[in-house]
Design a protein around this nucleic acid. Structure first.
Lengths: 186, 186
DNA sequence: AAATCTATTTGACAAATGTCAAATAATGAA
DNA sequence: TTCATTATTTGACATTTGTCAAATAGATTT
């Protein structure tokens, strides 16, 4: 299932939506370290990870900060830019050789114009990612670095094997050294 | 303008939407300290603040944590519960005597069934609040407590005069004592 | 395998923030 | 106004996390 966030919606409606979305999806292979999106430009695509792993990141005081990871069946884009049509501060980078499906903003916009009944699913998608984000805020506010780390490991067990420690560290808002120390604690 | 987040959309479309939404809006007066929503129940309303101020909060290890403030023209709900139709961890409390407009989930659902063209506006609304939330995450991750405080003061200057320090402190993720010290620094 | 590059860990110390208790200030009720 | 309650500030100290430098471990290339 590609639109992971829509998995609970009515299946027959969804089938039609998928058919229409298939038409505007473009599948492509990319190598590790390639950028799907570069900062300073408007992000015109929503990416679905079919195989592989991607992260969005940006630079804060010269430091590379991971904002989001996406693995198989997940989605990623420079969300602020994709929504607001303004230049993005984010880069999107592949951390493994990957198979990526991309949907252009324009195509999606056109499809929604043509079939406004799909707005509902976009709305549901947004609701889901909003909830995810709200949970992340709670996490940052009310859990220690160790708790955040444990929670991430639990929710995405094999992320650690696939991603550098420094990316995990910046994602949970701590330095690499602190994360290293946390891991060795019993 | 009540739907603050929709202010950039096409005005003629919006006028019709507003007319329809007016029909499902209920205006009510509440006193300071009243709860618009109580934790442990499903939140069935979206609230618009016409006059006054509200906050959503919950308890973490016995401590009262503010998740969100809403002042005039803003919206508030127990968003996780409103979206997912499950019991909420949040309470919504009024911090002043207030005039509140409420929209029931059911009425909104029915209206969207009847006029699916409005889905688009809900989508835009969600996009906007998603961006707000994403900014809040960046804020928490990459700004010091003092920077977060200054930013809040700048974005909502009179919040301080209207809200207890402890609520501001928990909102920006620090203790009341730390906030008190931050404020006296030059 | 050796050399090189990259990732992770460790040490020593500094800075930021938290905790708990108490003092002071502000507010609201009698 | 006075008293009682609530809000804010301050002090002393503990804990968490950051910074910078160096050491070690692991991976990749030759």
């Amino acid at each position: 299932m590609i639109f992971e966030k829509l998995k609970d919606v009515n299946e027959s409606d969804l089938a039609e939506l998928l058919t229409d979305f298939q038409k505007i999806m473009k599948r492509e292979s990319f190598s590790k370290k390639e950028l799907l999106h570069k900062e300073g430009t408007v992000c015109n695509h929503l990416f679905l990870i079919e195989k592989g792993i991607a992260r969005s990141f940006y630079y804060k005081d010269g430091k590379d900060i991971t904002a989001h990871f996406a693995i198989e069946n997940g989605t990623i884009t420079a969300i602020d830019s994709f929504i607001q049509r303004k230049n993005s501060r984010y880069n999107i980078e592949l951390l493994e050789d990957s198979e990526i499906i991309s949907i252009s903003h324009q195509d999606m916009h056109d499809l929604l114009q043509e079939k406004p009944q799909y707005e509902k699913y976009i709305r549901i998608f947004l609701e889901q990612i909003y909830i995810d984000l709200a949970e992340r805020i709670e996490d940052l506010l009310f859990h220690t670095a160790k708790e955040r780390y444990d929670k991430l490991v639990e929710s995405t067990p094999n992320l650690l094997q696939r991603v550098n420690l420094k990316h995990i560290a910046s994602y949970i808002g701590i330095t690499q050294e602190t994360l290293s120390r946390i891991r060795t604690q019993v």
